[in-house]
Design a protein around this nucleic acid. Structure first.
Lengths: 211, 211
DNA sequence: GGGATATGACTCTCGGGTAAGTTACCACGG
DNA sequence: CCGTGGTAACTTACCCGAGAGTCATATCCC
C-alpha cells in the first residue's frame, strides 16, 4: 500500500517536511513579509506566490495558515488598523483643541509609523476590495480618523462663521486628505525624522492657517 | 480538407455584418462608453467585454479599432488629460495670483467636468498601470497641475517667511491633494452645481486661509 | 463581386485555490 | 540507547475560472 505510491518523486523528488519552525513563529514571519509586499505593491498587484517567494516558503503553506489571499490581507490590515486607531484615540484623549489637536495626532501617527510605513499604505490601499470584511476593517479605521477630523473642522469653521453642513462635510474630506498627504509625503522621504516632520507641519500650519 | 470547414456556425450561426455605422462614428461611441465605464469601475476592475456589452457590440470590434485594452484606455486618458490640461493652462493665463489663482483654476476645472466627471476619475485612476505610455500621459497631466500648484504655494509660503525647499515641496503635495479632494467631493455630489461648488470653495478658503 | 464592418468561438496566460504525498520532530515502550 | 508510530510542518503538481487577445467566417453596402 505504501510501497510505490506514484512515480512522482523520481530522482530529485518532492522534499517537503517541517523545517522546525513553530506555527506561531511562521505566522508572524509571513505577516511581516506580507505587510511589506502588500504595502509596496498594493493588494491587486501582489500575488500570493510573490509573498511565498519573498518569505522563502511555498504558496500552499500560506493557504494552510491564512485560508485565502483575502484572509491574509485582512490579518495584515487588521493589525495595521489597530495600530493606527489605538494611536489616534490616544492622541484624542490628550485634550488638545483645534489645529493643535491635528498636529498632536499627526505627530502621534508619525511615531507609530516609524520603521513600518507599510502600515499606512495597507490601510489606505486603493486597490483593495471595496466590499467584504477587508473593506469593513479599512472603513472603520478611516472613519475613526474622519470623526476626529469632523470635530476639529467643525470647530474651526464655526469660529469663522461657516455653518453650512455641506461646507463642513467638504472641509472634513479635505482635512482628511491633508492628513493623509502629509503622512504619505513623509513615507516617501525616509531621511526625514519624525521630529523634523512634526516641526515641518507646525511651520506650514502657522504659515497658512488663520487661527 | 476545405469541404466542411467546421460545424461551427450550426443553425443559428454567426450573424456578423456591418450595421451601417461608419468607423469614425463607432470609434467615438466606443470612446464615450469606455470613458464612462473606466471612470466608474476603474481600469483594473473593467474588462473589455464589459465595455463591449455596454456599447452593444462585440469584443473583437474593440480590438479591431483600438488594438488592446491599454490602447483603448490610453485614448480615453489622452482625451481626458488634454481637456484638463487645456483648461488649467487657460486658467493660468488669466493672471490671478495667490489663493485667487487656485480658486480660478478650481472653477475652470469644475466647468470642464460638468456632465463628464469620468474625465477626472480616469486621469487619477489608482488602478491604472504605473509604467508604460498610459502612465506617461497621466503623469504629464498631473505634473502640469503640480507646476501650477508649486507657483502659488511658493508665493504663499514666501509671504509667510517659509523658504525651506522641502517645506515647499510638502506643501505643494498637500495643495495638489486639496485640489483633487474638492474635485472628487464634487463628483460625488451630483446635485451641487458648478456655481455652488465654486462659492463653497471661496467660503472655505476665506474661513481657513490666512491671506 | 469586393471591401468594410461585424461576430461566435477559440487559444493562452495568470493567479487563486486544492489534493496528495514527503519529511522532520517528539513522545514513549523496550 | 534504539526503534516506532503519531502528528505537525512543508512541498510538488495539479485544477479551474477569468479575462486579454486572435481567427475564420458572416453580412451588408456599393
Amino acid at each position: 500500500m505504501a510501497s510505490s505510491t506514484t512515480a512522482r518523486s523520481g530522482a530529485a523528488g518532492a522534499r517537503g517536511g517541517t523545517k522546525g519552525v513553530a506555527r506561531g513563529e511562521r505566522e508572524e514571519q509571513i505577516l511581516a513579509v506580507a505587510g511589506a509586499v502588500f504595502g509596496e505593491q498594493g493588494y491587486a498587484a501582489t500575488s500570493v506566490a510573490d509573498i511565498a517567494a519573498r518569505a522563502g516558503i511555498s504558496k500552499p503553506l500560506i493557504y494552510n495558515y491564512f485560508g485565502s489571499k483575502d484572509g491574509l490581507f485582512e490579518r495584515v490590515v487588521g493589525e495595521a488598523a489597530a495600530l493606527i486607531v489605538t494611536e489616534i484615540e490616544r492622541s484624542a484623549r490628550l485634550g488638545a483643541v483645534g489645529v493643535e489637536r491635528g498636529l498632536v495626532t499627526l505627530d502621534g501617527v508619525f511615531g507609530v509609523l516609524e520603521g513600518r510605513i507599510w502600515t499606512w499604505q495597507v490601510v489606505n490601499d486603493p486597490t483593495a476590495p471595496t466590499t467584504g470584511s477587508i473593506a469593513t476593517v479599512q472603513d472603520a479605521c478611516r472613519r475613526r480618523l474622519e470623526e476626529l477630523a469632523a470635530e476639529g473642522v467643525g470647530e474651526l469653521l464655526r469660529l469663522a462663521g461657516v455653518t453650512d453642513p455641506l461646507d463642513v462635510e467638504a472641509m472634513t474630506a479635505v482635512w482628511g486628505q491633508v492628513f493623509a498627504t502629509l503622512v504619505t509625503w513623509w513615507t516617501q522621504h525616509p531621511d526625514v525624522t519624525r521630529e523634523q516632520m512634526t516641526a515641518r507641519c507646525v511651520r506650514l500650519f502657522d504659515a497658512v492657517l488663520a487661527r
